[in-house]
């Protein structure tokens, strides 16, 4: 210790200091871990990009992943979309009825869905369903040496396992987001038009006036970026799993947490980026 000299019984102050030091250390460790992860994920992204253009092209694996990630997620994304649209319609209806603007329910729901809610919620659902499955599958392949076995058979494991999953996720996220948009607006329509008595023509007309193609396109761009990040994070965590069943559990856990947080954080920055892009590149309509 810096005091040198005599040995003293640890006082309350020292104990507190000790605790503070430990807290700082643990934050420091997490930060180092995060930097390491980001570096590793970026590297895996680069390698994936390189392998993408090298034969053999793993079409069979890609189709299997498109089916699993895309087709397999239709139900959960559809249900989420339907209820998001419905509950959002209920809330906006009540808020807008305060100043007699119920006709705007459709447009509000459609704008929020297409810009933010659909890509973010679809991203979170895909993280929960697909990210966890990818991390678990690759993690158990790692700890049972199946990934090593692939390598010894002169098959690049990254190309065989990671590339198809990442490509499928990037391709399917925008599709799932469109599904979310569509089903969500349908849900809002049901609630607003049949439940609350909003005029159908007004509901649809306002959507047409207020929602621009850029809103939808922006949401789809977000979705593709989320797909890339979610799948890379899950692949990275699974691919680098250590130890036995516990290591696989940790990998899955980290993949889901990191994936979800990433979707929310990156959404904010993408929103800023897209807004500034549209404002310099397109003359916006009202909205």
């Amino acid at each position: 210790m810096s005091t040198g000299g005599r040995e003293e019984a640890p006082s309350a102050g020292q104990a507190a200091t000790q605790e503070a030091v430990e807290a700082v250390e643990s934050v420091g460790r997490s930060a180092i871990q995060l930097v390491e992860d980001v570096g590793g994920i970026a590297l895996m992204g680069l390698q994936t990009a390189v392998w993408l253009f090298r034969p053999p092209y793993r079409l069979k694996n890609l189709v299997a992943q498109l089916d699993y990630i895309g087709v397999g997620s239709i139900f959960v994304v559809g249900i989420t979309g339907l209820f998001t649209g419905m509950v959002f319609a209920v809330q906006t209806y009540h808020a807008f009825s305060l100043f007699d603007a119920q006709g705007l329910v459709g447009a509000t729901v459609a704008l929020s869905l297409s810009r933010e809610l659909a890509p973010v919620f679809a991203g979170l659902m895909v993280t929960a369903r697909v990210g966890s499955a990818i991390a678990t599958e690759l993690g158990s392949m790692r700890v049972s040496e199946q990934i090593d076995a692939l390598a010894t058979m002169a098959v690049d494991p990254l190309q065989y396992l990671v590339v198809p999953r990442v490509v499928a996720c990037v391709a399917m996220m925008p599709v799932l987001t469109m599904l979310f948009d569509t089903v969500g607006i349908m849900g809002a329509y049901l609630v607003a038009v049949f439940g609350m008595g909003v005029d159908a023509a007004t509901f649809l007309g306002r959507i047409r006036t207020w929602v621009d193609p850029e809103d939808i396109l922006g949401g789809l761009i977000k979705a593709a970026v989320f797909g890339l990040l979610i799948s890379l994070i899950a692949c990275y965590k699974g691919y680098n799993a250590k130890g036995g069943a516990k290591g696989v559990g940790t990998a899955t856990n980290e993949a889901v947490v990191m994936g979800s947080v990433t979707v929310l954080v990156v959404d904010y920055f993408l929103s800023l980026l897209l807004a500034s892009f549209w404002s310099t590149h397109a003359a916006r309509g009202p909205g």
Binding site: S140, M141, S144, E145, Q146, D148, A149, T152
Partner: peptide, 10 residues
């Protein structure tokens, strides 16, 4: 290579 725990693709 024959792996100690077989490492079959499950």
């Amino acid at each position: 290579m024959v792996f100690q725990a077989a490492a079959l693709f499950d």
